[in-house]
Simulated scan of single mutants.
Amino acid sequence: MATVVLSAFEMIDPETYREVLEEAVDEPVTVEVAEFDSTESLIAAATGADAIVTDINTPVTAEALDRLDLRVVVRSAVGVDNVDVAAAADNGVTVTRVPDYCTDEVATHSVSLLLACLRSLDEYDDAVAAGGWDWTVGRPIRRVSASTIGLVSFGPIAQRAAEQLSGFDAELVAYDPFVEADEMAEYGVEKVAFEELFDRADHVGVYAPLTDATRGMVDADALDRLGEESVLVNVSRGPVVDADALLDALNANAIKGAGLDVLAAEPPENDPLVGRDDTVVTPHAAWYSEDARDELNRSGAADVAAVLNGEVPDGRVDPDADWL
């Protein structure tokens, strides 16, 4: 009998896993749910398990992978930044992710954050709620069609965002060392270097996965290249943007605002980026729709089933992939 241990995380649905695994796996499968609060709690919960399905917060470290006897780790998300993929490979453990389950949702959320900041919706709402009725509280606002929007990374989510933004007639540029210029051009996007993107863009959306190379890549130098009417949106991972540098830029009125679905620490504790008039912060919710949640769980369960059946799962992460 195989054992699958799921993180007690609201994104992960035990009933869907039980349903899919019962239908797809020949041998009996036990599905358990546990709190993954630390490496030790993860090890305690998953000792003897064949598979774990982890959340966005719990690190699956080399120590855990060395001490457990897993066959597969499912990361219920697009990224795998909290899983030691190299250590998993060393231990013969397959790592999977669900790369496409929320492409449309995150792209739409990123555009929503951009427009909310550009159109000063938060400031207007607060002012009206306080009894005001003054259009000037949101100044300055510029036409979206007159702007250049930069996309940091150009994977499926950024590509979908580019399709959505194309309707606003803005100029689109993108930085991604792993995507060719011809592919970007198919979306009406010009490939540029990282520094050039920040030099040219009026507004920037960050979509990059969190890796050693991308941690803190949007730093003070990058933000200094933007203008005082610029908006920065981050729907990737909090640490991709240097939080201190962003705070300094906002405090100095060097940029207009920021739309953030991710923060350096989640949930935040006294984060100075939260509750400002010039930021719109959502609780890592860009992924969410009922449709996306169902797809996330069914795809993750299908990957577990594939590994238990001796097959290669659709969401397998190549430990030698350039983007890791």
Rank of each mutant, 00 (worst) to 15 (best):
E183S: 09
G216F: 08
L114C: 11
I255L: 09
V5L: 02
P272G: 11
P268V: 07
V111L: 11
R276K: 03
N82Q: 15
D104S: 14
D182T: 14
A285L: 13
A254N: 10
W323N: 05
A162L: 05
F168L: 11
G257Q: 06
A86V: 14
A116N: 10
T108A: 14
A181S: 13
A265S: 11
G310C: 08
V173Q: 03
L118K: 13
A208S: 13
E19M: 00
A254M: 09
A89F: 02
A321K: 09
G257M: 08
V192I: 13
L210D: 08
A49L: 11
V60Q: 00
A305S: 08
W135Y: 10
L210V: 11
T61P: 05
A305G: 11
D303F: 01
E123N: 02
Y288R: 07
R298K: 07
R75L: 01
F154V: 10
T211G: 06
E163I: 06
V173F: 04
N82V: 15
N270R: 11
R200L: 12
M11V: 08
G150W: 04
A146N: 12
S166G: 13
Q159R: 14
E10G: 11
P209D: 07
L68I: 03
A8V: 05
D199R: 15
P99S: 09
V73M: 02
R298S: 00
T214D: 09
G300V: 02
E183V: 15
A87G: 09
S236C: 09
L263E: 04
A170I: 08
L21S: 05
N309Y: 02
T47E: 14
V317L: 04
G315W: 00
V98N: 03
D122F: 04
V179Y: 06
M217N: 09
A220P: 03
I56H: 11
Y124I: 12
V179T: 13
D125I: 10
